[in-house]
Amino acid sequence: MNIFRLAGDMTHLASVLVLLLKIHTIKSCAGISLKTQELFAIVFASRYLDIFTDFISLYNTLMKLIFLGSSFSIVWYIRRHKLVRRSYDKDQDTFRHYFLLLPCFILALLINEKFTFKEVMWTFSLYLEAVAILPQLVLLQRTKNIDNLTGQYVFLLGAYRGLYILNWIYRYFTEPHYVHWIPWISGLVQTLLYADFFYYYFESWKNNKKLQLPA
C-alpha cells in the first residue's frame, strides 16, 4: 500500500467520522442529503460482497466493515432517530436518486471486466459511487448556511477521491499490468464532480468567509 492510498482511506474514514460526530453528538443532520447516504449504503453493500469469501488483509476487512456499518447506521439515524430526523431538510433534499440506480446497473451489465454476478455488482458500485454525491451537492446549493462540519465532510470526501487518483497513477508506474479503465474513468468523473465545490470551499477559506455555493 502506498502513501496516497493510505491517505485516501484515512480522509475517507475522517469524512465518515465527521458526519457521525455531527449526527451523534449534535443530533443534527441539517444540510446532509439522505439520498446520497442511501446511495453510499447501496454502493458499499454491492461492492463488498466478497467480504466473507475473499480475504485480502485484516486492514481491508476492517475498513469494509467500518464503511458498511457507518453508512447503514447513518441512514438509520436520519430515518429513524427521533431527534436527528427532525433536523433533516426533507423539502430541500428532492433529488430523484432512484433514477440513478437503473442506468448505473444497466451500464454495469454492458460494460464490465467479467460478466459474473460479483464482478457486475462491483462495477455497478463504481458507477453508482461516481454519481452518489449529486444529491448532496444539489442540497448544498440550496442550503443558505452551510455549517462547518457539513463543508468539511464534503471536502474530505472529495479529497479521498483525489488521493485515490494519485494512488492509481503511482500504482500504474510501480506495478506491472496495472490497467483498469472502468474504475479509473468512473473515479475521474466522481472527482470532477467535486471541482466546483472545491473552488468555492477554498475561496471561502482564503477570504475567511462562510461557505456558500451559488444557486
Binding site: 492510498r5 482511506d9 469494509k64 467479467k114 494512488n167 499490468h177 474504475p183
Partner: peptide, 10 residues
C-alpha cells in the same frame, strides 16, 4: 501481479 487485482482497494 494479476491483471485484475484492484480488489485490494476500498
Amino acid at each position: 501481479a494479476e491483471p485484475s487485482d484492484l480488489k485490494d482497494e476500498l
